[in-house]
Amino acid sequence: MLFPLVIGLTYCESSSAFAHDIKLSTWNLDWLSLRNPDDADLPSDIPHRSPNDFEHLNHYTQHLNADIIALQEVDGPEAAKKVFNPKDYQLVFTHDEVVQRTGIAVKHNLIVTQNDDVKSLDVSSPTAKHHLRSGLDVSISDGKSTLRLLVVHLKTGCWEQPLQQKHHSCPQLYQQFHILEDWVAERQDEGSAFVVLGDFNRRLTLYDPIMIHLQTIAPLLLTTAGKASPCWGGEYFIDHILLGNAASSWLVPNSLRVMTYKESASAQGLSDHCPVSITLHIP
């Protein structure tokens, strides 16, 4: 089945024209770290950025011009400051002791409160050499309305396999989705507007049994549903933004966008993911 391709925009319009319009994005930055290439915690085949690469990423950040950017695969705030100017953005990260942390960049006109990390998303064995990422749980307010966000980076490798798959990464991914269900159920009971966003490492559609089961916990709006990503050559999305409770009604229709790169991402030290964005009209 062929899905419509989301428009890939390199240059995006500012959302500042409307005081209560919030541009919300998610961006996996592909092992963004300041560590030395020979660091034992880094694989040998990942990108190692030069000062020019960081500058190039910052250039794209300015054109993205999002109010809130959920981040994955970033080695903490010091690395993030090379891409997101601290004069423009507040940077908040989980307290994980891993290289690929989840975080968020939020413009200073918004108020950010960090809640407890969702550590239970690390479903790897306590003795595992490499642990999975916690979820970053934050509340963001414009002074009138509050939005609860959970930033995730789930286990890779179970892109669209059936629930019966018992090998490799699928059992761990299914465990993580059960944990997401618990978090969603709590927000549903509270009645708070909420978003779950990030790198799900799953080609979610409305017909995926995982998504169907999530919908039994709470009505969720999968903003990437029925679309394909220009970043992945027309494949289904794995980076998603899910809206719940009042946040579903805040979505500006047809605001889903993907910021693509003008050149080869690998050649320019960019990322193997493109930022995915929507606009919310906050009452």
Results as ranks from 00 to 15, higher is better:
residue 1 M to C: 01
residue 1 M to S: 13
residue 2 L to E: 03
residue 3 F to P: 00
residue 3 F to W: 06
residue 9 L to I: 01
residue 9 L to C: 08
residue 18 F to S: 14
residue 20 H to G: 12
residue 21 D to V: 12
residue 23 K to W: 06
residue 24 L to I: 15
residue 30 D to A: 02
residue 33 S to M: 04
residue 33 S to F: 01
residue 35 R to S: 06
residue 48 H to T: 09
residue 50 S to M: 03
residue 50 S to Y: 00
residue 58 N to V: 00
residue 61 T to W: 05
residue 61 T to F: 02
residue 62 Q to D: 08
residue 62 Q to V: 13
residue 65 N to M: 06
residue 67 D to L: 11
residue 71 L to E: 05
residue 75 D to H: 01
residue 80 A to Q: 08
residue 87 K to T: 10
residue 90 Q to Y: 06
residue 93 F to Q: 09
residue 94 T to S: 05
residue 97 E to A: 12
residue 97 E to L: 11
residue 98 V to C: 07
residue 101 R to C: 08
residue 103 G to Y: 02
residue 105 A to R: 06
residue 108 H to T: 04
residue 110 L to M: 03
residue 117 D to S: 12
residue 123 V to I: 05
residue 127 T to S: 13
residue 129 K to F: 07
residue 131 H to T: 01
residue 131 H to I: 07
residue 133 R to P: 11
residue 134 S to L: 04
residue 137 D to S: 12
residue 138 V to Y: 03
residue 139 S to M: 10
residue 141 S to W: 00
residue 141 S to R: 03
residue 143 G to R: 04
residue 145 S to M: 13
residue 147 L to K: 07
residue 149 L to Q: 04
residue 150 L to R: 08
residue 152 V to N: 08
residue 154 L to V: 04
residue 173 L to I: 01
residue 175 Q to D: 15
residue 175 Q to M: 14
residue 183 W to V: 13
residue 183 W to H: 12
residue 185 A to F: 06
residue 185 A to M: 11
residue 189 D to G: 02
residue 189 D to S: 13
residue 194 F to L: 11
residue 195 V to C: 14
residue 195 V to S: 11
residue 198 G to K: 12
residue 199 D to S: 09
residue 201 N to T: 09
residue 205 T to P: 10
residue 205 T to F: 04
residue 206 L to N: 11
residue 207 Y to L: 13
residue 211 M to V: 07
residue 214 L to Q: 15
residue 217 I to S: 01
residue 223 T to V: 11
residue 225 A to Q: 09
residue 226 G to S: 03
residue 228 A to C: 08
residue 234 G to L: 00
residue 235 E to S: 13
residue 236 Y to N: 12
residue 239 D to A: 08
residue 242 L to K: 13
residue 243 L to R: 12
residue 245 N to F: 06
residue 249 S to E: 14
residue 251 L to E: 12
residue 252 V to E: 14
residue 254 N to M: 02
residue 255 S to F: 04
residue 257 R to Q: 14
residue 258 V to M: 00
residue 260 T to Q: 05
residue 261 Y to N: 04
residue 264 S to I: 00
residue 265 A to K: 03
residue 266 S to A: 11
residue 270 L to A: 04
residue 276 V to F: 06
residue 278 I to T: 11
residue 279 T to P: 02
residue 279 T to I: 15
residue 282 I to D: 03
